[in-house]
């Protein structure tokens, strides 16, 4: 029997993997991938809960919006990465430390 908790656990795992990728990767594109994973995990969460909402279909509707947002985020993110690369000549976030005082 697949309960709600199963979905939630899977979603948590994916989310944490995505979190690890954001924190530990030395390639900005991989960070973007990590963000994608996190958003995916969130969408899975929505969908899992949406099963119990026949009245409003809230979960599934919001899942669609989230997918759209994710796509937009990727697009803009890539544009930013391109600009960063043009400016710093590197995509290793650890080499970009102009914020350091």
């Amino acid at each position: 029997m697949i309960t709600l908790t199963h979905f939630l656990v899977v979603s948590a795992c994916i989310f944490c993997i995505g979190l690890y990728a954001v924190l530990a990767k030395r390639n900005t594109i991989m960070i973007l991938v990590g963000i994608e994973l996190m958003i995916n995990a969130a969408i899975l969460n929505f969908v899992a809960f949406g099963k119990y909402d026949k009245v409003n279909y809230g979960g599934q509707v919001f899942a669609i919006f989230a997918i759209v947002l994710a796509a937009a985020a990727v697009a803009v993110g890539l544009a930013i990465i391109l600009n960063v690369y043009r400016h710093f000549n590197t995509i290793n976030p650890q080499n970009i430390h102009e914020l350091k005082d």
Partner: peptide
């Protein structure tokens, strides 16, 4: 999770 449309949309868009 009985969200067939979301699944298809995921494949298409993502």
């Amino acid at each position: 999770a009985l969200a067939d449309f979301i699944a298809i949309t995921q494949i298409l868009v993502y």
